[in-house]
Amino acid sequence: MIGVERLVPPHQQRRAVERDHTAMDTAQLQPSPRTHIDINDRAARAALAARLRVTEEQLRKTVRLVGTRVRTIEAHHQA
């Protein structure tokens, strides 16, 4: 990491680098909002339910069965 040596004292450099790697790992684990639905987000849930022409309760049950990936949810309702 360029610049860390100048900004962080030598005894704290390792911790700074570890924090940066942890932040990157956490960001990589988050699903893309375009591919997955946050079932707890009322607006997202209502929009997807309307698009699929199902009730929000049906959508919740589907998410419990197949997960939060939008394409999988759509495929489940088309079958």
Rank of each mutant, 00 (worst) to 15 (best):
I2M: 11
I2N: 13
E5R: 09
L7P: 00
L7F: 06
V8H: 02
P9M: 06
P10R: 10
P10G: 04
H11E: 15
Q12T: 03
Q12K: 14
Q12L: 15
Q12P: 00
Q13V: 06
Q13E: 10
R14E: 13
R14P: 01
R14T: 14
R15A: 12
R15W: 05
A16M: 12
V17K: 12
H21S: 07
H21F: 08
A23E: 13
A23W: 02
M24A: 15
D25S: 10
T26Y: 08
T26G: 07
A27G: 06
P33E: 04
P33C: 08
R34W: 11
T35R: 08
H36E: 09
H36P: 00
I37R: 09
D38L: 07
D38W: 01
I39S: 06
N40W: 03
R42I: 11
R42E: 08
R42V: 13
R42A: 13
R45K: 13
R45F: 00
A49E: 02
A50I: 02
A50D: 10
L52A: 08
L52Y: 00
V54N: 00
T55W: 00
E56Q: 14
L59D: 03
T62D: 07
V63G: 02
R64S: 11
R69W: 02
R71H: 05
R71A: 15
A75P: 00
A75S: 09
H77I: 00
A79D: 09
